[in-house]
Design a protein around this nucleic acid. Structure first.
Lengths: 336, 336
DNA sequence: CGTCTTTTATGAAACGTTTCAAAGGGTGAG
DNA sequence: CTCACCCTTTGAAACGTTTCATAAAAGACG
């Protein structure tokens, strides 16, 4: 900037004014400075700017797993909200790795981002509370939060309830829940919702098949386990904690010669794009992904921009069941 | 930091030494300073650090489309390489939007990132050359580059050739290429490869069905157009520019009652995770995605860390054909 | 033509670090 | 007891901006 000033024969302050409050500078001078900037290929140093200005005009979203399409949709919502507010978005992928997440949080705090959106590896990470206490607003995405943060979630218990109620309604009695690890709050909630549906119906039984991670490979493995059971005891329907699991399960069923939905009905969760394109289009619980991200970012902005007082909100969205071919009414004659 | 110094009754310089060269500081003092840091919840200001130190310890990857699984795999490779080098990774999603890409490039240059990996919206963006000329190393990912940059690509002509050669070998003569827009260099190369295969075989004909974008929806639309043709003239095989298109096409075929591969064989491109989980597991051209990202990042690091002289390399990886159920040898008796 | 007001430009301070030359304090050798 | 040397610690400069009080220039007015 000093070079620019020299080149345009003005003072440092004037160059800064051209950049930040051009209306204070005369037409002639402004042009001269802009020309100098062009000729020298000057690029503002954001660090210095930030150091002096105090704010970074940057937001961050720490994603749990970039390769899960659910989160990329959420990210689009976040992106749009950030764009609308004129903020840049730093996307970080923790890859479900606690350490990497911690490293990112440290880094982001050091960068003085204006706020952090995060789908954390552990629901209640003390690090997040500490971060918020020190002044960086934090909004938890797709996970419940204590009163210390805003959060945006979808009602997983309701989702589980919808899914299993649908299975019970279509005539299933032996139902498997496939998902895990169970300690993930969400998974627990979906199980609870599933159990609530069974209890309310007063009939049917729920078996939980826990998986190590919610991905296609684990879905396949679960499929193998289910297919291995004698048909008489085998669940006739599976409710999966997400669509990746459901697709894996579906694929394994097809591979092992079990028919979907006749031998095994499947309900997934998330309604990702591929749910519809699956071998048998997948019945799934749909979450308002884009809206989730967008709303989360808006909450964060409100907290970051708001002056002082702020009440943390815990927003809960309602999921919807999308029925497709992977579930179907069992004729009464064929019921167990 | 001043507060920490006061709290620990040492000078500013000592605090800095504790942080950066702890071996210079006596055990006792170091402990005292660390305690003060803990008590005050001090967090380094990265901007100031960077301003003084000159380097940002940050890399950026400007992704063309986060929701395309191809790029998330590439991103994993980039991520790992960045981690290994102790650098943070800034993931940006241009969403195929020229303006957003430009905005990100400006932002990143202002942030003084150590280097930029990018899959650009346009192959030859003068902005990229300018960026590199001003000192920010740029590596082009999955797109060819002029001699001004390093680049990492996969041989798309070879990929197209492999796919169509496979279709010709399995007995197909009327082959459709589904993909677009054609002006994307990659698409052009795949078409060229496909034509090369046809020419070499001296038999068969290739029809190009151009799509507006390479996604599932467009794949479905292409499927509709193909299915609408009279069976006598309809291509018996389709080679799609990517798996999203192929999955859309497959889905539409199934929906319209055409059998895959009997009525329509399909070859996709990218071999994404869902290719295998599709209604009919998809034959696809597999690209070394992870390696692509990792190598790109390594090239970038070499350029960024290297002192001065650097020869730009254009690395080309070879794709592989993965044969699955969506293509099958046509019995000689049934050939046209 | 002087005075007052408005517009435009300037210079210095401040932001929070890192770095480096130099000062201070011990220790051991002579 | 003195000197030299090593280990610690210190203080100040520098990084590249923004901001603000102030100076200079330019108009406006009587």
């Amino acid at each position: 900037m000093k070079d620019v000033a020299a080149h345009a024969r003005v003072s440092l302050g004037t160059v800064s004014n051209v950049l930040n409050r051009p209306e204070l500078v005369s037409e002639r001078t402004r042009k001269r400075v802009l020309t100098a900037i062009g000729e020298l290929g000057f690029v503002r140093n954001e660090s210095a700017r930030q150091l002096r200005g105090g704010s970074s005009r940057t937001l961050a979203y720490v994603v749990l797993d970039t390769s899960n399409p659910f989160f990329t949709d959420v990210a689009r919502g976040v992106q749009d909200a950030a764009d609308a507010a004129g903020l840049a978005l730093f996307l970080c992928n923790s890859g479900e790795d606690r350490e990497r997440q911690a490293a990112y949080l440290d880094l982001l705090e050091q960068q003085r981002v204006e706020g952090v959106l995060i789908t954390p590896v552990d629901a209640a990470d003390p690090r997040l509370t500490a971060l918020a206490r020190r002044g960086t607003p934090v909004v938890i995405v797709d996970r419940g939060a204590g009163p210390a943060h805003c959060s945006v979630t979808v009602d997983d218990m309701l989702g589980g309830d919808l899914a299993v109620t649908h299975l019970l309604d279509t005539g299933h009695r032996r139902i498997a829940f496939v998902g895990g690890p169970r300690m993930i709050g969400q998974v627990g909630d979906r199980i609870a919702g599933a159990e609530r549906a069974v209890d309310r119906a007063g009939t049917g039984e729920l078996t939980v098949l826990e998986t190590a991670r919610p991905n296609v490979a684990e879905g396949r493995r679960a499929g193998e386990r289910l297919a291995g059971l004698p048909a008489a005891h085998r669940p006739t329907a599976a409710f999966c904690a997400n669509d990746l699991l459901a697709l894996g399960l579906l694929q394994q069923m097809v591979r092992l010669g079990l028919r979907v939905p006749d031998d095994m009905a499947i309900v997934g969760y998330d309604d990702i794009e591929f749910a519809e394109a699956a071998a048998v289009p997948l019945t799934s619980v749909s979450q308002p992904r884009y809206l989730l991200g967008r709303t989360a970012a808006e909450l964060l902005l409100a907290e970051a921009r708001g002056d002082g007082a702020h009440d943390h909100e815990q927003l809960v969205f309602a999921p919807e069941l999308v029925v497709r071919a992977s579930t179907r009414l069992i004729p009464v004659s064929r019921r167990a």
